[in-house]
């Protein structure tokens, strides 16, 4: 039985789709059978980030409504053969996904894959609540910025109340993925630090992804950053996050953290 993970945030543009693709690809590269599922009906983008935009024939809604078989809609990645994509529909709206349809498709995916990674749309509307509904665990993607942290807090509340796990009285495992982190700015007090965000949200940290040009470059090319530049700082951070997701204990390093200029100059005195 596969594990269902929802990648969610509340706020848009924080890196849910990038993270879904990067983590999905990294897990698959490690030999796991992975299906990444786009829940953003009407605004799909996971296909584009994975470079599979021209290969979508049938989508999630077709399968949920019984118009196509799951095997017809699953798109196998050309680089990693254990990575599959179930695309969202671009032409329908979010109400086209029925709760029963989603439950059936997720059930089928659980039988076929080790990991089902659900890319949630932004917001707290139907698409987002459907994406989290069947999850066994959640990755909350947060930027070190006030509006993102606030929205993440709201999403954590929903994960604890509106999911099937919560309704069964179980507690969902939630992980924080801090993205677009700039260690230099955090050190200068210009940006919320890792500890600030962890103190406020109080969920365990899965990884810290540094702000990096590599992320945009990978998306331009339609390749997850973990496949495109596997040795780059963000790719290494995603790979570490995946190992933690698999239950390994990997020491947390803050990517790009340097000693501030003055402490380098004066040594301990200024620190």
């Amino acid at each position: 039985m596969g594990r269902v993970v929802v990648v969610t945030s509340g706020k848009g543009g924080v890196g849910k789709t990038t993270s879904t693709a990067a983590i999905g690809a990294a897990l698959a590269k490690g030999g796991q059978y992975v299906c990444v599922v786009d829940f953003d009906v009407g605004l799909r983008n996971l296909d584009l980030i994975l470079g599979a935009e021209r290969r979508v024939v049938y989508d999630f809604i077709n399968v949920a409504n019984g118009e196509a078989k799951l095997s017809q809609a699953l798109i196998r990645d050309r680089r990693v053969e254990t990575l599959y994509l179930l695309a969202a529909s671009q032409t329908r709206d979010k109400d086209a996904l029925s709760e029963e349809g989603v439950a059936r498709v997720i059930g089928e995916l659980r039988e076929m894959f080790d990991w089902i990674i659900c890319d949630s749309p932004a917001g707290i509307e139907r698409g987002a609540t459907l994406a989290m509904r069947h999850a066994d665990q959640a990755i909350v993607v947060t930027n070190p910025e006030v509006s993102s942290v606030r929205d993440s807090d709201r999403i954590i509340g929903l994960l604890d109340s509106k999911t099937l796990m919560a309704e069964r009285g179980e507690r969902m495992e939630k992980h924080l993925l801090l993205t677009r982190y700039d260690a230099g700015r955090a050190a200068r007090g210009e940006m919320l630090g890792v500890d600030d965000v962890l103190d406020i949200l109080s969920i365990p940290l899965l990884g810290i992804i540094p702000e990096s040009d590599e992320v945009l470059r990978a998306s331009n090319l339609g390749a997850p950053v973990t496949l495109n530049e596997a040795v780059s700082a963000p790719a290494r951070a995603y790979l570490d996050a995946c190992r933690r997701l698999m239950g390994e204990s990997v020491p947390m390093v803050i990517p790009g953290q340097k000693k501030p200029f003055f402490s380098r100059l004066f040594g301990r005195r200024a620190a």
Partner: peptide, 9 residues
């Protein structure tokens, strides 16, 4: 400004 952000949040 980060301490201000933290306190406001």
């Amino acid at each position: 400004t980060a301490p201000v952000a933290r306190e406001r949040l």
